[in-house]
Design a protein around this nucleic acid. Sequence first.
DNA 1: CAGAAATTTGACCAGTTGGAAAAAATGTTA
DNA 2: TAACATTTTTTCCAACTGGTCAAATTTCTG
Lengths: 230, 230
Amino acid sequence: MPPIKVKMLDPKRPRGRSGKSGEGRARPQTRIQKEKQDLILEAALDVFSLHGFRGATIDQIAESAGMSKPNLLYYFRRKEDIYKQLIAGMLDVWLAPLRHMNSDGDPLPEIRSYIRRKLEMSRDFPRQSRLFANEVLQGAPRVVDMLEGDLKALVDEKAKIITGWMEQGKLRRADPYHLIFAIWATTQHYADFDVQVRAVLGEGRGGESRFAEAATFLEELFLHGLKPDA
Amino acid sequence: MPPIKVKMLDPKRPRGRSGKSGEGRARPQTRIQKEKQDLILEAALDVFSLHGFRGATIDQIAESAGMSKPNLLYYFRRKEDIYKQLIAGMLDVWLAPLRHMNSDGDPLPEIRSYIRRKLEMSRDFPRQSRLFANEVLQGAPRVVDMLEGDLKALVDEKAKIITGWMEQGKLRRADPYHLIFAIWATTQHYADFDVQVRAVLGEGRGGESRFAEAATFLEELFLHGLKPDA
DNA sequence: CAGAAATTTGACCAGTTGGAAAAAATGTTA
DNA sequence: TAACATTTTTTCCAACTGGTCAAATTTCTG
């Protein structure tokens, strides 16, 4: 006589918070679920930002989160689910400073504070920056839609504001899109190419000071350029 | 009686051209060796620049080069050998424009032409740029030495030149290291973040024109900044 | 052309990877 | 605390990975 198997309902895996449409009234998150998911996302950010999607392994993430691989997979069914949630979460943060740029303010201070905010993000959230850089560098297969949709829309909107400022003579005439690219590039450089920056600056200037220096430099550059005063 | 094995000399694998010290008088390259190695490096550049070191597979590279995996491994013993050779080769090219910056020239034109050259490299060798970006982004495990050695030395030298120009009043005073970073960042952005740039610029401006626009913009930015003429 | 050298192929292997399944352990709640 | 739901562990697997090896094939050279 075979051992009697009793009912055994669906294993009720908790699904990631990303929750696509068809989720109905899923049961609310338990305490443990919230804790563990945060733990996993935190660990995954470390690993993904350093190795990219393909380069990262579930094992690494699990170990870094202090749990077993199957246990991790209980919270996120697939490696990609973790990754997607990280990307979505970071895009929001990443774009906040740009959203914040206000057409009512004075152009120069507005741009200056945008640069400053982006630079602070490079300092405070370098892993997020690198995660995104890795993704875009590898062709952004998982976020092209977002880039062509939300991101483009936002940039279009802000580009109009900048153009308006230029037409009022409050800003030197220049292409607003390339201006935004230049701000992105220069500020994120300190997060994405951190190793290189440190290597070139050497021992003496490797500390936190480089962000303050960068802020000063970029402010001057974007305001006056390199031409000496007449 | 076992089948008689006849001599079978060393399989004489050709070694990669990187040739560390102990190579003695290796026999010269055959025609096929040169052709096939170039073919492999070309294919590997495609794959590595898109997926990074860990993300790339020998199979992919072999297929992309139109040969079998063991055949590829006949020319390069290890995956890392291909990668290293690519990195070494590209670093040279990558640094050429900076080496070219001359203390005898006029500062502003000299810097302007440096920017232009770097931008052209982003346009003409985007894969090399991405290969390097991938490496640095992931902590540059295979090139930190070079960064702290050759690269730092070169930048130190050029930074001195720039400082000299500033002291002569030919350039606005600013940190030369951060200036160099800013040039790197803004120019490489068009290669490394190509997908993003295209997505934001949209259909209409996705063509080659963006490099010309970028050149114009960056020239203005580095020369005058954003402040409108008084 | 014969023999030697160089090149290519096919079979194979051990380690790693993402992921599934079921049982065991732990928590939660009536 | 009993019944149930949630969480964790153990075991396992098939696909993929980097890399080896010997044999078969092709190319070169005298």
